[in-house]
Design a protein around this nucleic acid. Structure first.
Length: 448
RNA sequence: CGGAGUAUAGCGCAGCCUGGUAGCGCACCUGCUUCGGGAGCAGGGGGUCGAGUGUUCGAAUCACUCUACUCCGACCA
């Protein structure tokens, strides 16, 4: 992508409405524009990051055996009356009427609808286990939206729903999602710690939140230090096998959110291993049994010929919240520092002197070669001073900058700057592209 | 929903107290010079001062009403 042809409205000054660093940087880097309280347009750069996150979530959901579909944002009130939640949900649910005065709502979640789909088509235990998910916009009329897309009223959510014949099967479904979540967050560059959580108004007795540690997190959390360094299950994990040992390993050390915190148990953790910090909730998984299948009559026929209510669980990740969460975890004074896996561009070619034949030639060539190699590369071909180009590249957080200008070219050299470490390498023109590919590919491939 | 604020050019702000020609920086446009860390000079465009009502000869400025947005608290992917 040529920057001169792109749409990247970066701001030099920080808009006053932004309080936390991720919100400030998302506005300054031209990722989002606020349209109303808790409502944002995703500008090209932000949308690009959002899509990369979504793709990783999809890959890991699919790997775990979940199946993707897509449900509508507008739902019928009748469906929600069946579960009893139409009255229970309160003002957070956006309610509306269509032209025929039918009561509708903009979905805050989809348990009712997925249960309706399930009960229509699935009749036999032989079709289980089943896990269906979608990635769709949700609306919750928050009392107080804040922190940019961290807590917005309209937000994107990946919500998966598992269906099993019995509790034992449901626990296994829960475990598959648990492992899928560990892998998903790590591939996004994050360290997300599973913590026992309150299951809230939806109910259920197996409930874990995945928490990213960050100073600006909304909730206080307490954990054993070893949870932070623990290696995640690899890509060869057999999701049809026994995941119990992995779950045991990940749930044996102390980790809890404020609501579930047990000071006495935390005190048993060695003093030098006690971590009390703040965290951002980026995912929540829980098992709730027959809470919806019972009132909505979602049953399957078991091996004994008898109908049983299906055991369900639900599993959420908020991509539009992950974007600021990643920024909270990775930024410095100059701007965002994206992990390669979600960076809007993997590299930027900075032509320091547009209009100079040599500089143009070398830059165009490097840009073409990187593109041909499949690198997601931006080419800064704007006819403007070098300072602004560096500032923009740093602000939007592109992991690698290939800096090309007349001064270096006289010696046959160009420079690669690593955004994260600040390290700079000077190397011959011909080697730079290969070097960049060598740096980027290992971080991008699904080997984590 | 309780408490506290803010609203003047795309963004950041001054002007308001003490009513009288709407300003500054950045951004934008034109030209020239530039280009190795947010370039310089010269010229230029852009505003029903959030909306309404009132007071006044005259309102960005004073009064009242409304709306939007932000922050703190209670609630939440």
């Amino acid at each position: 992508m040529r920057l001169s042809r792109y749409f990247l409205p970066v701001l030099k000054e920080t808009p006053k409405e932004a309080e936390i660093i991720s919100h400030q940087l998302m506005l300054r880097a031209g990722m989002i524009k606020q349209q109303a309280a808790g409502s944002y347009s995703w500008l090209p750069l932000g949308f690009k990051v959002l899509n990369k996150i979504v793709r990783i979530i999809e890959q890991e959901q699919d790997r775990s055996g979940a199946v993707q579909l897509l449900m509508p944002t507008l739902q019928s009130a009748d469906l929600w009356r069946e579960s009893g939640r139409y009255d229970a949900y309160g003002d957070e649910m956006l309610r509306l009427k269509d032209r025929k005065e039918r009561e509708m709502l903009y979905g805050p979640t989809n348990e009712e609808m997925i249960t309706d789909i399930f009960r229509t088509y699935v009749k036999s235990y032989k079709d289980l286990p089943l896990n269906l998910y979608h990635i769709q916009w949700k609306f919750r009329d928050e009392v107080r939206p804040r922190f940019g897309t961290m807590r917005s009223r309209e937000f994107l959510m990946k919500d998966a729903y598992s269906f099993d014949i019995d509790r034992e099967g449901a626990v296994k479904a829960f475990q598959r999602m648990f492992v899928a979540y560990l892998r998903t967050f790590r591939r996004l560059g994050l360290t997300a710690i599973p913590m026992r959580a309150d299951s809230g108004p939806i109910g259920g007795d197996l409930s874990y939140e995945f928490i990213v540690l960050a100073d600006t997190g909304e909730s206080a959390v307490f954990t054993h230090a070893d949870m932070v360094e623990k290696p995640i299950p690899g890509p060869d994990t057999d999701f049809r096998g026994d995941l119990e040992p992995i779950i045991k390993d990940w749930t044996s050390l102390y980790a809890a959110t404020e609501e579930m915190h047990d000071a006495a148990k935390f005190a048993e953790v060695p003093a030098d291993k006690q971590v009390s910090a703040r965290g951002i909730e980026v995912g929540h998984i829980f098992y709730f049994g027959t809470k919806y299948s019972k009132p909505m009559k979602a049953t399957v026929t078991g091996p004994d010929g008898k109908d049983v209510e299906v055991q369900m669980g639900s599993y959420g990740i908020g991509p539009t919240r992950l974007v600021p969460a990643i920024i909270e975890a990775f930024h410095d004074d100059a701007g965002i520092v994206w992990p390669v896996s979600v960076a809007p561009f993997e590299a930027v070619v900075i032509n320091l002197k547009v209009g100079d034949a040599e500089s143009d030639g070398a830059s165009e060539k490097a840009y073409a070669e990187l593109k041909a190699a499949g690198i997601d590369v931006l080419y800064d071909d704007r006819d403007q001073g070098a300072g602004g180009k560096f500032a923009t590249a740093d602000l939007v957080g592109i992991p690698y900058q290939l800096i090309i200008g007349p001064r270096g070219l006289r010696e046959g050299q160009v420079e690669i700057k690593h955004r994260k470490s600040g390290e700079r390498e000077t190397l011959p023109v011909g080697d730079a592209v290969k070097r960049l590919i060598g740096l980027i590919e290992p971080q991008r491939l699904d080997t984590i």
